[in-house]
Write a protein that binds this DNA or RNA. Sequence first.
DNA 1: ATAGCCATGTAACCAGTTACATGATTGA
DNA 2: TCAATCATGTAACTGGTTACATGGCTAT
Lengths: 197, 197
Amino acid sequence: MSLKHAILVMLENEPGTGYDLAQRFKSGIGHFWNAKHQQIYLELKKLHDDKWVEFEVEAQSEKPDKKVYHITRAGQKALKEWLRKPVKPPRVNDALLVKVFGGQPSDAPMLVAELDEHITRYRARLAEYGQMEQSYFGQDEVTRRRYRLPYLTLRRGIRYVRGTLEWLEEARALLADNGIPSQPLLAARSHSKRGKG
Amino acid sequence: MSLKHAILVMLENEPGTGYDLAQRFKSGIGHFWNAKHQQIYLELKKLHDDKWVEFEVEAQSEKPDKKVYHITRAGQKALKEWLRKPVKPPRVNDALLVKVFGGQPSDAPMLVAELDEHITRYRARLAEYGQMEQSYFGQDEVTRRRYRLPYLTLRRGIRYVRGTLEWLEEARALLADNGIPSQPLLAARSHSKRGKG
DNA sequence: ATAGCCATGTAACCAGTTACATGATTGA
DNA sequence: TCAATCATGTAACTGGTTACATGGCTAT
């Protein structure tokens, strides 16, 4: 299990509340590790039992009291130990691939439609990552050096999304070459707001 | 949940026992959907309760009786329905990325060592996929057309592994550029057996 | 009115892993 | 002697999701 360790890494970066961590899991680290707030609160409790984190309560009126967690010495030690033992590569369970594998030729139109959705989504994500990379390059050299490792994870994201997109387009082409008039997708323009019903 | 559907897809291809499915999950479909035999037996039981599969018992002496499962009409219908409703992209929980994200500069040597292990593993896998692609191209055109969709999943694997390797090498280079004399990995020669302890 | 932000959590459930159990046959 | 292959399964556990619960504040 490494949600524990993902949380430790985040708290090492900067102390925070459970809510706060949940937000952070929606960006940055969230691109390669997912967690919902319910699970985070449970893990924080376990981490506290292990004495790997502590918290201070910040009283608030009108809202539940904040618990601002920070990593302990013991937590840092545990993190270091975890870093030195190899992890196994993540298992992938990708339902889309199951569909493609199992689809009949007659399912092609359906699959093409679904691939298009994924293409749109991944194009948006690639644009987003591109932005992030630009803003990294906007930093001075010292800062860039400092954030070298997190930057590498962004590179991973970019490569992954790019590769995924290339495959989706390849798959689409091959499937559409079935008799479906190849109606090309709109170029990634993003931000086209649709009005509410 | 789609282990159910992954199993249906496999049984649609060809009937088989639980054991048999477990083997198939180690190759082909197994590269994008993982399952152990324990889970497979449970799902088969559920699928049977749903009447999506049936089985015939083949008595064997000296071994437990075989249950050869096949998909039912109802199962095929359920599969078709599943195909037509979009799946969400798989969540990734990649511990290696957490390490890279959270590592300190001083952890670089450790990380480089671990990256090297992954590089070796992925190179072997890329070679393996390359073989599979070659043997696909060795087929006549009719067969190739027939296995077009499964072939696409192989393409996915190739692209994924290639992209992963490129990133691993990029990451290695950037981390090793810390003061570590860059001792290059052996080229992917594979099959170098090491004698047992 | 409705949804979203902040901030915490519990409970029920679904999905997946690890360990345990049986037992003959074949090969290193 | 040890491990692997064939063939089934149960039990305990860990990991993760969905639904439910509270409650004021702000923006549409």
